[in-house]
Design a protein around this nucleic acid. Structure first.
Lengths: 215, 215
DNA sequence: GCCCGACATGAACGGTCGTTCAGGAGCAAT
DNA sequence: ATTGCTCCTGAACGACCGTTCATGTCGGGC
């Protein structure tokens, strides 16, 4: 089998002891490895070697490899939810401004913390069912923020989104937009000569057009 | 460890011999398992048991588990590329019609064959590097179809897409749109009461708006 | 009847996995 | 000096991995 051997995510063979508190060193090392190679093929031994410890030491800080993944995902996801709420709340009264602010925060975060976002989106499936429910709840909450902004815009006649089958499916539109914003993290890189700020403006403009925002 | 045991993807404990030619039975079983649980955690034994054979028989039909995955992904990806080309070619001369036709084909396919799409998009990372290059080339080709349609629309003054930093980044716009269309497969289900046809129309409308198509 | 190719079997190989645990090191409080 | 606590070590465990291979079965051509 081709098992995708470790290609050294930090320094070559070093493996010298991380100076941070061990629990944080483990989190950081695990995160980097999951991002690069994916949860199921990263072993506990890989993670611990990367922060200069041996496999057994993991279990002084986490109950299992599974709990470690959940710890990482849940913290980035929680932070994202908080940021989204805050963006909408601080954008005044106009739904157009709310939507623009939301897109800006969401896209910039997914550009800047693209690795974090990538891990949270890709590895969620490996969590056991109760832990995964927790993350999904947060995702739904974020989607509902978008839906409520759209709904407000429609009610106040500021948005005119496409209709399908004679009625508006705001949930589908929100999902479509969120898919778009989320997956910047899959291909954006500063090497393209486009700043995060510019990406955010591009996506905001596309979103406002897609929902038929009045000028 | 919690390894996500097999939850019986077909019948319970049956494991009776599939009546198709074995190579197709293997493909089908592998596909179903990869879709449900992900490539790295599905074992050769799982796949072969699902079609009523034992582990060794796999190697009469495929060189390795890796080749089996590539076989599955490459065939769906190739078919998708073909469909996209055909859609644009058969849509006449107007870039707006071309874009609409492309979205229609792409979205309907991702709704209908959502499992296939999901596997092709999610498991690609497990292929070894030469095989993955093959699939990525096909993806780039599809993206370039979109870019060329956008470019034609802009040149003929039929599209007015958002600008970023004073110039148009058609590649970024194409990526953003493709992300949106691709990921319908992650959440669409006929249970929502929206048909594939309606989804396609919704996405086409959003795309035309986003790129500023003139009426 | 005999042979051959195609294909399935299932034990076996060498390896890796997540996790456990007895033992030891370091250090602060007694 | 002794105790007790936290933390790390590394061998060990049992399970399972992808793959190989000697062996067996079976159907069709001579």
């Amino acid at each position: 089998m081709t098992k995708r051997k470790q290609t050294t995510v930090t320094a070559p063979g070093t493996a010298e002891r991380d100076q941070r508190p061990p629990i944080e060193a483990i989190r950081a090392a695990a995160f980097a490895q999951f991002a690069e190679r994916g949860y199921p093929v990263v072993t506990v031994r890989d993670i611990m070697k990367a922060c200069g410890l041996t496999q057994g030491a993991l279990y002084n800080h986490f109950k299992s490899k599974d709990e470690l993944l959940h710890d990482i995902i849940a913290s980035t996801q929680g932070e994202l939810e908080r940021l989204c709420l805050q963006a909408v709340a601080g954008a005044g009264d106009d739904p157009r401004a709310k939507l623009a602010a939301f897109v800006r925060v969401f896209v910039i975060r997914h550009c800047r913390l693209r690795i974090e976002a990538l891990v949270a989106n890709r590895e969620i499936g490996w969590l056991d069912s109760e832990r995964v429910a927790d993350v999904r709840r947060s995702r739904r909450a974020i989607r509902d923020i978008v839906v409520s902004v759209l709904k407000e815009g429609v009610d106040r006649d500021l948005f005119d989104p496409p209709q399908v089958g004679g009625r508006r499916d705001l949930k589908a539109i929100a999902m479509a937009l969120l898919d778009q914003w989320t997956h910047v993290s899959m291909w954006y890189g500063p090497g393209r000569g486009v700043s995060e700020e510019e990406m955010a403006r591009l996506y905001a403009e596309m979103a406002l057009r897609a929902v038929g925002a009045r000028h």
